[in-house]
Amino acid sequence: MLNVSEVITDPDFAQTFIVHRKSNEWIAGRPEETETIITMLGVITVADAKTLEQLPEGDRATGMMSFYATVSINTTNEEGTSDQIEWRGDRYRVKKVFPYGDYGYWKAVAERMAGD
């Protein structure tokens, strides 16, 4: 199999981004949430043009980005909620992960959390 991880971390293509990973643990019968901050390096591309949601309280512009990394990025699972990715001052919530680990990378599609 072809391992493309060298392209994902190549300085000509890669950028750094921050992953906010939240996990849950039951302590004294109550869920306790902790957040781990992970700095990752990978390729970032546009997944979807700006999307306009027309809501009763006003219009909200969001968009989707694709994040490629050589380590796993998570969606909601039994250990915690979906990762949130911080890049260029915006936060994106991971919606879908394509586990291409056999080829040396993971692709995550994430939606911008704050609207214009």
Rank of each mutant, 00 (worst) to 15 (best):
M1I: 11
M1N: 05
L2M: 13
N3C: 00
N3M: 00
V4I: 12
S5V: 05
S5K: 02
S5H: 03
E6D: 11
I8H: 01
T9F: 04
T9R: 05
T9W: 02
D10Y: 02
D10A: 03
P11E: 11
P11V: 05
D12A: 15
D12F: 00
F13S: 10
F13H: 09
F13K: 00
A14I: 03
A14S: 14
Q15I: 00
Q15G: 10
Q15A: 13
T16L: 14
F17V: 13
I18E: 15
V19D: 01
V19Y: 02
V19W: 00
H20Q: 09
H20S: 07
H20K: 14
K22I: 12
S23E: 11
S23M: 11
S23C: 04
N24C: 08
N24V: 09
N24K: 13
N24H: 14
N24A: 11
E25M: 10
E25K: 13
W26Y: 12
I27G: 07
I27M: 11
A28G: 08
A28K: 12
A28N: 13
A28L: 04
R30P: 01
R30H: 12
R30W: 12
P31G: 07
E32M: 14
E33M: 12
E35W: 05
I37T: 15
I37S: 08
I38H: 09
I38D: 02
T39V: 14
T39F: 06
M40S: 06
L41H: 07
G42C: 11
V43S: 05
V43M: 14
T45Y: 05
A47M: 11
D48T: 15
A49F: 15
K50F: 12
K50T: 14
K50D: 14
T51L: 15
Q54L: 14
L55W: 15
L55M: 15
P56M: 12
E57P: 06
G58L: 12
G58A: 12
D59N: 14
A61R: 14
T62C: 03
G63K: 04
G63N: 09
G63P: 02
M64F: 08
S66Y: 10
A69K: 01
T70M: 07
V71K: 02
V71R: 02
I73D: 02
I73M: 00
I73R: 01
N74K: 07
T75L: 05
T75D: 04
T75E: 10
N77Y: 07
E78A: 09
E79G: 03
E79P: 01
G80P: 04
G80Q: 06
T81Q: 14
S82I: 03
D83N: 09
Q84N: 07
E86I: 07
W87C: 07
W87L: 07
G89Y: 04
R91P: 00
K95W: 09
K95A: 09
K96P: 04
F98T: 11
F98Q: 15
F98I: 15
P99L: 05
P99A: 08
Y100T: 06
D102E: 10
Y103L: 05
Y103V: 08
Y103T: 04
Y105P: 01
W106I: 02
A110K: 01
E111A: 12
E111Y: 13
M113S: 09
A114F: 02
G115F: 04
D116Y: 03
D116G: 07
D116N: 05
